[in-house]
Design a protein around this nucleic acid. Sequence first.
DNA 1: CAGGATCCTCGAAGATACTG
DNA 2: CAGTATCTTCGAGGATCCTG
Lengths: 109, 109
Amino acid sequence: MSKVDIFLADCPARTTLALIGDTWSVVVIAGLGERHRRYSELLERIGGISKKMLTQTLQKLERNGLIERDAPGYRLTELGTSLLDVVCVLAEWAEQHTDALLDARAVAD
Amino acid sequence: MSKVDIFLADCPARTTLALIGDTWSVVVIAGLGERHRRYSELLERIGGISKKMLTQTLQKLERNGLIERDAPGYRLTELGTSLLDVVCVLAEWAEQHTDALLDARAVAD
DNA sequence: CAGGATCCTCGAAGATACTG
DNA sequence: CAGTATCTTCGAGGATCCTG
């Protein structure tokens, strides 16, 4: 079973995607970063997220052990920090390839 | 500007997330893998996806230059293959940490 | 086999107002 | 400041049937 195959059907990667594959989870994880941050700081830093979705996403991430409340505010757990590393890989890819993505789209349209 | 900060507000990573951050894009990319595969093969390999969503997702990925039709069937473009590498990093993380994720959830409930 | 067309449901997400 | 509560909208996604 190759590394790719674990994404098929019922597998760890699909489980993970179900937990963090919503609109805001990855963004909030990145917005939190390595530091402790307060709610209002996150709201401002992230930008474009409503208070409702920030609250909901924070609760979801906390429930899954990716962040913890560190009053007043939040920080990534060790588990969450390890995921942040993965998120950074995606960020790096995005930085290098978003232009190509948008170009391809322009050509297709 | 740190690597994490590019996820905030209007940035390449947010753009990328908007393009591949739906339920099926990442799964289809992984399901395609390095090889050329036919529609029916994907449908079976992925599992749990409807024909409608497979068709829609393939079209979306093609429009963004991540896959190309290679009749009859599909394969990742060079751009798509580079993204597959990132996806594999996520897969690897998932394989190692899904248990911790589920445990944390069980404790919280 | 590989879709397209249609209809429908349900939950994500926003807007707004309220609270300790 | 950091949420909670309520209402509403909108579109992702499923189910089903049809087609070259």
